[in-house]
Design a protein around this nucleic acid. Structure first.
Lengths: 209, 209
DNA sequence: ACCTGAACACCGTTCAAGT
DNA sequence: ACCTGAACACCGTTCAAGT
């Protein structure tokens, strides 16, 4: 008897499971239970667990594309890249360990990649070579991925290791500057803006305007 | 009867297993077999698998520290950061999926973190605030992590998706610029140097000299 | 102190069988 | 076309027992 299961519902339920209980809880059986079927039923909708993971990644990246297409093109590549960076971060943050799990991802939907085209067209029209445009996008992507991996890791670590006091004790004697740096860790959002500004400044310095 | 197993030997064997067969093959049983003991024996040396993973991470980061301490301090923070970035990348590249697995890592050895102190001291003596020094290190780290995750992912993907021809077919009609960008993907090392230069240029533009 | 044997609850996946 | 029941080989982990 058909239960109205679809690939989309399976993927959505898997993302919910991830967010609620972490990646370790995303098992075929738990997912089936949540969808009120038995484990083998899922294999009618996805080939195997790896394909499920790929579909989860692609779903997240489709979220990035959707958010990006909501906003108007910026005044130039700097604006476009800043908007992309903020959206990529926010979409990763929507899911527990999002950056680590979904980066370097096997995207199953070409439309997600085809989405780069209008940006490349505008940036090259504005004077960048295609190589520069590609570099710019990749540098920003790498930065966001690395930033959010660290951000999410810290967010869910035991406070013993990341609270200022616990950390100082763990570090031992001396290393005053390391401790000082640990104490000034500010809000994730403003840290992100500051670091993003540094990366964008590098692009401005190195690419044709 | 003691078999001369040590925590260090266990961790080293786990890293070998990772490199030879990937993370999925790093199981307690496979690791025990490689060390010629039964699975429960490992629990005498590590508390559980998570602790094993943390020790593997820490071992990799100790490699970074070791390589870094071999070279003389650079002429300034820019040189130091460039050397750090290259070493971090090379140590990640030593292990299959190294960047993804070992980034945002739970370092178990305070000495690895204490190692930042001499750098922070020299950079602040040269005019940076502690906040700037910390930002600089974090931006470079984030970039390297993101870069190498993507680099290693591509390296071991099926050629269907990353060979120029397979990729063009997969992308479909149009999107000429996206395809063009895909064709010019050059050597990882020179791409890394180019992107690192962009990040360092951003730091130069934004931090006190 | 260090290791084994046996067991527990749990994985992903296959496949014949049901509807 | 879509789902279940039963089974397979395999997990991480515990624990009493051996030496």
């Amino acid at each position: 008897m058909a239960k109205g299961l679809t690939r989309e519902r399976v993927v959505a339920a898997a993302l919910e499971l991830l967010d609620e209980q972490g990646m370790g809880a995303v098992t075929v059986r738990a997912l089936a239970a949540r969808l009120d079927v038995r484990a083998p039923a899922l294999y009618w909708h996805v080939r195997n667990k790896q394909e499920l993971l790929d579909e989860m990644s692609t779903s997240v990246m489709r979220g990035v594309v959707a958010e990006l297409s909501k906003i108007a093109p910026g005044a130039g590549w700097r604006d476009d890249l800043a908007a992309y960076a903020r959206i990529l971060r926010s979409q990763y943050l929507l899911h527990r360990d999002g950056a680590r799990i979904f980066s370097g991802t096997r995207i199953t939907d070409p439309d997600v990649v085809r989405m780069k085209e209008p940006y490349f067209e505008r940036w090259t029209a504005a004077g960048l070579t295609i190589g520069e445009a590609d570099d710019a996008l990749d540098v920003v992507t790498a930065f966001v991925v690395g930033f959010v991996i660290e951000e999410q890791e810290r967010r869910q670590s035991e406070p013993t290791r990341y609270s200022p006091i616990g950390r100082d004790a763990w570090l031992g004697e001396g290393v005053q500057k390391v401790k000082e740096a640990g104490h000034l860790r500010d809000d994730g959002a403003q840290r992100f803006e500051r670091h993003l500004d540094i990366v964008l400044a590098g692009l401005t310095a190195r690419l044709k305007r």
